[in-house]
C-alpha cells in the first residue's frame, strides 16, 4: 500500500515542480515590460558609454591643436604588446640646443589589449581613454592610427 501511495505522491510532486517552472516562463511571457534587449543600431543616439569606458587610446588636443605628449617613450615601454610606437624628431631650439619632440605617436588598435598601462604610466597625462567603440573597418591598415594630429604642438607649460 505504501508503494502505491509513493507512486501517486511522485506524480503529484512531479506535476507541482513542473507547474512551478511553467509559472516562471509564463509570467515573463505575459510581462513584456521585462524585456531587456537593447536594439543597438536604433538606440545609437541615446546610447551613452560610461565615462571610464575603454574604447580606444586617444591623445586629447585642446582648441589650439596642442597636446601634452613630450615623446618620452614611457608608454612604449609600458605596453606589453608593442601596440605603441613613438617616432621622435629633433628640432633646433632658439638657444642653439637640440630638443627631441614627438613626431608621430603610432597606435595599433588591432594589437591593443586595453590594459591601460600606457595611460597609467604617462608622466604628463597625455593619453586618455576614448569612448568610441565602433571600430570595425574593412582594411586592417586603418586600425593603425597616429594619435597626435598633424601640425599639432606641445602645450608650453609641460616640463620634461
Amino acid at each position: 500500500m505504501n508503494s502505491i501511495f509513493e507512486y501517486f505522491a511522485d506524480i503529484f510532486h512531479t506535476v507541482k515542480s513542473l507547474l512551478t517552472g511553467m509559472k516562471v516562463t509564463g509570467r515573463y511571457f505575459f510581462s513584456p515590460g521585462e524585456i531587456v534587449t537593447q536594439q543597438y543600431p536604433e538606440n545609437r543616439k541615446t546610447l551613452k558609454m560610461y565615462d571610464r569606458f575603454k574604447g580606444e587610446v586617444i591623445m586629447p588636443h585642446n582648441d589650439h591643436n596642442e597636446h601634452r605628449c613630450t615623446g618620452c617613450g614611457i608608454c612604449e615601454t609600458a605596453c606589453p604588446n608593442g601596440t605603441i610606437e613613438i617616432i621622435q624628431a629633433r628640432i633646433d631650439m632658439p638657444d642653439g640646443k637640440k630638443k627631441r619632440i614627438i613626431d608621430k605617436h603610432i597606435y595599433h588598435l588591432g594589437m591593443c589589449t586595453f590594459c591601460g598601462l600606457c595611460i597609467k604610466a604617462c608622466p604628463s597625462d597625455a593619453l586618455a581613454w576614448g569612448q568610441e567603440f565602433e571600430h570595425a573597418v574593412f582594411d586592417r591598415s586603418k586600425l593603425t592610427k597616429t594619435l597626435n594630429q598633424p601640425g599639432s604642438s606641445i602645450i608650453k607649460d609641460i616640463v620634461e
Partner: peptide
C-alpha cells in the same frame, strides 16, 4: 564593472 573600470570581461583592474 564597466562603469567602474571601463571594461566588461577582461578588466586588468588590479596592479
Amino acid at each position: 564593472f564597466e562603469e567602474s573600470f571601463g571594461s566588461r570581461l577582461l578588466h586588468s583592474y588590479y596592479t
